[in-house]
Nucleic acid binder design. Sequence first.
DNA 1: GTGAAAGCGCTAACAA
DNA 2: TTGTTAGCGCTTTCAC
Lengths: 345, 345
Amino acid sequence: MPEQSPGYRPTLEAVAARAGVSRATASRVVNGGDGVRKPLVDKVLRAVEELGYVPNHAARTLVTRRTGAVAVVIAEPEVRIFSDPFFSQQIRGISKELTAHDTQLVLLLVEGPGDFDRITRYLSGGHVDGALAFSLHTDDPLPAITRRAGIPTVFGGRPGWTTDPGERAVPYVDADNRGGARVAVQYLRDLGRERIAHIGGPPDQTSAMDRLDGYRDVLLDMDPTLVAEGAFTVESGARAMAELLERRPDLDAVFVANDLMASGALRVLRDRGIAVPGQVAVVGFDDMDPVAKETDPPLTTVNQDIEGQGRLMAKLLLRSLDRTGNGAAPDSVITPTTLVRRASA
Amino acid sequence: MPEQSPGYRPTLEAVAARAGVSRATASRVVNGGDGVRKPLVDKVLRAVEELGYVPNHAARTLVTRRTGAVAVVIAEPEVRIFSDPFFSQQIRGISKELTAHDTQLVLLLVEGPGDFDRITRYLSGGHVDGALAFSLHTDDPLPAITRRAGIPTVFGGRPGWTTDPGERAVPYVDADNRGGARVAVQYLRDLGRERIAHIGGPPDQTSAMDRLDGYRDVLLDMDPTLVAEGAFTVESGARAMAELLERRPDLDAVFVANDLMASGALRVLRDRGIAVPGQVAVVGFDDMDPVAKETDPPLTTVNQDIEGQGRLMAKLLLRSLDRTGNGAAPDSVITPTTLVRRASA
DNA sequence: GTGAAAGCGCTAACAA
DNA sequence: TTGTTAGCGCTTTCAC
């Protein structure tokens, strides 16, 4: 890579001149070289190399009307984003996929309700070609915002909104929360457990709802005293476990809606000298690294491929951005989950 | 906000026409309105409002040569980024500051050594005005890359590189790791502890080095058998603690280089029935939320304002990007730390 | 297959 | 103070 005086940037014009061709031909070569004779292609390529030419992105965007950038919108005012590897992993997956397609990732963090205006303006401002958003709460304004902004969007996690009839469904990627929960609870049942409790997540998050539904699917005659509500944090899991033990000292298993809460629950059980899985079997959800492996005992839990979900989101979005005809509106995808057996159940 | 047929975007031309002024005047108003008479300003503003005009960013960049975007480069191939809230918090601070200055955040995740080429190309490609980078390892190639790319860069964390004489020092923001460590160890000493051990982080990270140096500052006659090395993870902290107890069962205090390792150490002490702080006092580093508050017992630790560091990084970079003359090259800043007393020491 | 030329939407001299 | 005009660097018809 030739080192130039910093700040100087050769233009396509310069490349064309050096290669002895027109700007148009140089442009064709830079953009793939279709329909240009081999010798000319080589000449141009050499000029590019020698000059250290890098296309001016702004100029390109101005004429093509494509920015080559995608916004990732994260609305999570809670502390949760700080202690939850969930986002980091999804973003990693997204980043990999976008990078592979020369697309930039513009991060939009929503700090508060007042920010929605800013986000709307940005999204409608032609800065990005599409958006990826995480919608966690049932009353999330994000779906409405991206719809209004009129840019293709794929959501991470099932949005809580029920689609109005006639309105186009919002495309999303989500794990099979309900199915995973079903498998987990069925597993506890097959183990012979009879009083299977559940520690659920915040009821305004669709993943929590879906996992609770999966629990209900298996335990049709669900006893409400066996269900406690947490907040997807370690501490809330501990509290919920204590509450359950208070109410139902006879419980012999718990299906916990995420690993963080499960680790809190395990701590409470250990502190009270209750054997796991001997007296109480515990199954978590997420297979979060490294939490699940390092609990005492190691946690049996439901694995979901979070990074893969991120990749998939990006993939779906990029496909809908593709102008070569097959740029159909993306469908939603539910990714599979698998039960990982460790020692807690 | 007027809803238009999606895809249509009014131009400055349209605004000017509607306001009955020239494009130049419209442009002036949109960019602050200096030197335009009030009534015209109002007219233009109204036209903007009515048309729902949003400036075309590409066109503007093309002529001003400023992108209004900043890259955040994160090179952390390790698992660590997944379990460490450190980055999320810094990014949050960065995001807030950038947003307040209408600057976009482009996220660049470095997945492996092969990625450095890509990053270099991107940074020199005029996509962004500057960069913020996290340099954690002493052999990090990032400083060299951003220098070669020739764009202003501010680092998070002291880069391990010793600056060649004559070469411009790399500007960075870092916590006062050494000073914080000094205060922590001195505090243990003031408590009357006489055999103060240390669990350090990976020696290729400057923060770990600096904290170790602070420990040494106080314990000049440092005994090597009192020092163990961890990897900034819970498990490694537990291992290091076990190792130390093996070697020096007589130790009466431990200064641990971060809270994650401290929580592992506490677990080991608890498991062995060693009273904290009765027999062994423990001080951590980071005051990580929620870890430090929720250990058993709650952790006495050194607080650093991570989000503030992020803000500061952005602030320094934006200042050096400012073209109004005072755009001096940024200096480095060391942010203060404070000891937070809880129950473990 | 290749080149000439128009124009994307905007800012910044320069004129008026 | 306001308007006119010349590009910024690129892609893309349209001729050749």
